[in-house]
């Protein structure tokens, strides 16, 4: 994902002389292409996220597009007020990039687990929020972000995420990654995932086919969300399940709940994510996804249990 991001930003720099990359002294090795080939567009702000956010706002107010890069919670929570007051209130053209959303830095401890960032960024007026699942989504997200005249949050994994088999690739829409059967009496469920859990969602959709008539989707754009696409899914399924490497408060599950509530749709919603808790253990992303029930096995187990209880 990181490589896709940098390549996409370099492409933008080729097209537009007003594109800049700021970093708060992170991205060693990642930034090489920019440092070597676009050095005049690269600014290492030092370990100063607050100043980075405000300075990016000042640069953007002068007609530039500024990508500000850091990891985990540093480019969001550490400088939240600067994002709110200086970037968002002034509609500044700043693209906030966080590498390592969710458990990407799982071994490094709670400080590096970003599990509230989507909720916080979604709550800021005018902020567009993306959480791409693989490199192809990242490339499309960066292109789309550059078209938006205003603040954008881009939440990435750390790298090495498997490619998602998209049936369609329109970054502004819910994107189908698994089709349900056309003729089935089984209860229909739609699995909706965002970001780094989408591969697990795709795997889970295969394992649940014996019990449910399953479709699955990747939703990289969380705000504004594809209301029509979500509504169509909600209206055509018995149950919608959201999966996210994030607190269930304020993230994808909440976004879908808002669509359901606002449109008087009665679809059942099951939210899978961090249950309003901090991590209590460390480990690899795979380990933590499994520990907190967000991986394929966790999704399948939860939905089988629900089926058993409801059909007992």
């Amino acid at each position: 994902m990181k490589k896709a991001l940098i390549n996409a930003v370099c492409n933008l720099m080729d097209e537009n002389e007003n594109v800049y990359m700021f970093t708060a002294d992170l991205g060693y090795g990642v930034m090489n292409n920019i440092i070597e080939n676009y050095s005049e567009k690269f600014v290492n702000m030092g370990i100063c996220e607050q100043n980075m956010a405000s300075t990016a706002a000042g640069m953007a107010m002068e007609g530039n597009i500024v990508f500000m890069y850091s990891i985990g919670n540093f480019p969001t929570l550490r400088c939240l007020e600067q994002i709110r007051n200086d970037i968002a209130y002034h509609c500044a053209n700043v693209k906030i990039v966080a590498v390592g959303g969710g458990f990407a830095y799982g071994n490094l401890g709670m400080s590096h687990h970003a599990t509230e960032d989507i909720a916080v960024m979604r709550a800021i007026p005018g902020m567009t929020v993306f959480s791409p699942a693989d490199s192809s989504e990242v490339t499309a997200v960066v292109k789309e972000a550059a078209k938006i005249d205003g603040p954008v949050y881009i939440r990435l994994g750390r790298g090495g995420e498997p490619d998602v088999a998209h049936i369609s690739l329109d970054i502004n829409k819910v994107m189908r990654i698994a089709e349900r059967e056309s003729d089935s009496m089984k209860p229909s469920i739609a699995l909706l995932g965002t970001g780094t859990v989408v591969a697990d969602v795709a795997d889970a959709s295969k394992q649940l086919k014996e019990t449910y008539n399953v479709s699955a989707y990747s939703i990289p754009k969380l705000k504004p969300i594809d209301m029509d696409g979500v509504l169509e899914i909600c209206k055509s399924n018995d149950c919608v399940v959201t999966v996210e490497e994030h607190n269930i408060v304020g993230g994808l599950g909440s976004a879908i709940a808002e669509v359901i509530a606002d449109n008087k749709v009665g679809t059942r919603l099951i939210r899978i994510g961090m249950n309003d808790q901090f991590t209590q253990v460390v480990g690899s992303p795979d380990y933590l996804r499994h520990y907190y029930g967000l991986d394929c096995a966790g999704i399948v187990e939860k939905l089988h249990k629900i089926y058993e209880v409801e059909n007992d």
């Binding site: 405000s54 300075t55 706002a57 640069m59 107010m61 002068e62 007609g63 200086d86």
Partner: peptide, 10 residues
Amino acid sequence: CVAAGMALNA
């Protein structure tokens, strides 16, 4: 800090 961004642009 925003002022620094404007100065950097110049």
